[in-house]
Every structure is written in C-alpha cells, then in structure tokens.
Write a protein that binds this DNA or RNA. Structure first.
Length: 308
DNA sequence: CTCGATCCCTGGACGC
DNA sequence: TGCGTCCAGGGATCGA
C-alpha cells in the first residue's frame, strides 16, 4: 500500500526517466478508476512531460504547455493515485504487458509508461487550470513541509481519534496505516485518543516521530509489504524496521508486552497495550487473530500473513 | 463534525 | 487439486 515514502520512492525513480519525454499514444483498458477517460485520450498525445512530482499520495506528471492544437492551453497534469495495488512502470513497448495493465502511455523513446493495478483502488485524472487547483486544495498539509505549530493546530482542536486524523488526507496528505501506527507507537500515543485530548507535548512528540519515520522510510525506499517495487524494480527495506505494524502477537521491542491488533477508525491498528495507554472507555477487545502456528517445514506462511 | 456501515475490487489465505 | 468463503484496505458516500 503505497503511502508517502513509497510514492516518493516511485517519484524519484520515475522523474529522471520521464522528464522531457513526449507521449505518443495512449491505450486504456478498464477505466472505472479514471476520472474522464476521453480526456486522457484527447489531451495526452503529443504532450511533453516536464517533471514528476509527489503530492501526498499522488504522483503528478506535469506537462509543458501544449503548442498545438490549442496554443493557449494550460500546462496540465496527469494525476495518478496508486491506491493499494497500483504500479507505474516504464517498460519497453515490445515487452508483454502485465495482467491488469489498465493504462499504457507510449513514449517517444520506444518505452511505455504502464499503470498496473489489480484492484483498481487507484485513480487517474487529467487536470488543468482551476480544476487542478481545486483538486490540490482539497488535501491537507504535507507532514514533511509542515511546522510543528501548524501540525498541532490541525490535530489539537479536533474531536476525532488521532489515528483518524492522521489518516484523513484533508488533514495531512500522505500518511497511511503503516506510518500512522509506527509514529503513534514511537510517540507512545494510543490511536484511539481524541485529537483534542492530546497534550502539546504529545502532539510535538508525534510530529517529530512522524517526520523522522517518513524520512527514514524514504531513505530505505519505503516498505515492501506484499509486492511494492520502486520504478527500478527494487523492493523497499523499511518493513524491516517496523516496530508495531504487522507485529501482532510479537513482543513490543520497548517493553516486551504483546503487540495487539485493534480496530480504530475502521482500520486495523497495531498497538503496544503498555506503551500506548488506551483512552477511558475504549473497548480493549483485540481483533480475532487469524494467524496460524507456523508449520515446521514450509515456513513462510506466518510471515506472509502478517505482512499483508 | 464525527461516527460507523457499505461499496468498490482482486488475490491470497483458509477450510473442507 | 479445487472450490467456496472471507478478508484487507484507501477513499467516497450516506445516514445517524
């Protein structure tokens, strides 16, 4: 599930390969995740990719202004959200397309930029001008470009649970389940605590933990849980540093208590019951375990399951 | 404003 | 080996 560090990793891999490339043709497969498919078909061919950016969990391919047929046209952007299982990879056009390839942008260097996404929880949209601005305005602050007071302001006044706030892309853009859980654990905050109940000190700890973790994860090219690979086909390594995420039933590395999986804000959340004290009234019933005792020989099942 | 429920979708795990 | 069932999860949407 690509979150900020994974999307940043993809962006860094893609940017040097795509800058300056012209899109020659567009092939679309299933389009139920595309805002207006005909807009892609019409606007993309002939466009030159100026640069690739990350905006929260979105990738932005920014185009040079179109010279023809309408010279006055704005610069335009292809917005790509990878959802949970999306990939964006440049491949030689003659290579067979992977299953679930739903978009293929033929480039002027003989390669194809392919969007592969089995579940189609992602999103693609061509946007320019006001519509682009409106879209980008919808989303909250980038945690890496936000000051501590600003972060505090966005969390403190809210009566939602801090986990819900971290995951809410209108509050902060880019944080998903993994990095929310990891930063809450580091800051010793239970995900079910209400934003308004957090002390300034706790919010500060969360702010720093989140940033540190995101930066470190970027350095390690993100977390590869099931099959995330960067633009060069390399897996990330941050999953090796997860302290709580996916560690249900294992000892907390800080206090040896058993990590639990609980449901907060409709999402499963991994917590240390001792380091992260639940707020009063929070049902402590942990989710039913779905993990088997690993069989001696064909090992892997256990790990695979938890990493999911 | 906030909550939970529901839907989208597929592959993988699991039980038989 | 094969088949049915359950489930994850980011985000949109809806009703409470």
């Amino acid at each position: 599930m690509p979150e900020l560090p994974e999307v940043e990793t993809v962006k860094r891999g893609l940017a040097p390969q795509l800058a300056g490339r012209r899109i020659v043709a567009v092939t679309l497969g299933k389009t139920d995740f595309v805002d207006e498919p005909e807009l892609l078909q019409r606007e993309l061919p002939g466009r030159v990719i100026r640069l690739v950016e990350r905006y929260g969990k979105f990738l932005l391919l920014r185009f040079e202004a179109a010279k023809e047929p309408a010279p006055s046209r704005g610069e335009g952007v292809l917005l790509v959200h990878l959802g949970m299982t999306g990939w964006l990879i440049p491949q030689t056009a003659s290579q067979p397309r992977a299953k679930h390839t739903h978009a293929a942008l033929l480039l002027d260097d003989g390669r194809e930029l392919r969007y592969v996404d089995p579940r189609r929880f992602g999103r693609m949209a061509y946007l320019e001008g006001d519509r682009l601005e409106t879209e980008l305005r919808r989303w909250g602050a980038d945690p890496l470009e936000t000051s501590r007071p600003e972060f505090q302001r966005r969390i403190a006044g809210r009566r939602a649970r801090v986990k819900a706030l971290l995951l809410d892309q209108r509050v902060l853009r880019g944080v998903g389940n993994i990095y929310a859980d990891e930063s809450l654990w580091h800051a010793k905050i239970h995900p079910a605590v209400l934003g308004s109940r957090l002390s300034a000190r706790a919010t500060g700890a969360l702010y720093h933990a989140l940033r540190r973790i995101l930066l470190r994860a970027i350095r390690l090219r993100g977390s590869t849980i099931s099959d995330f690979l960067d633009a060069d086909g390399l897996p990330g390594e941050y999953q090796l540093h997860h302290r709580v995420y996916g560690r249900e039933g294992k000892p907390c590395v800080r206090c040896r208590s058993v990590i639990q999986r609980v449901r907060v804000a409709g999402r499963s959340s991994y917590v240390c019951p001792r380091c992260q004290r639940p707020p009063r009234g929070f049902r402590t019933a942990s989710l039913r375990k779905r993990v088997r005792i690993p069989k001696t020989s064909k090992g892997k099942r256990n790990t695979i399951r938890r990493l999911k």
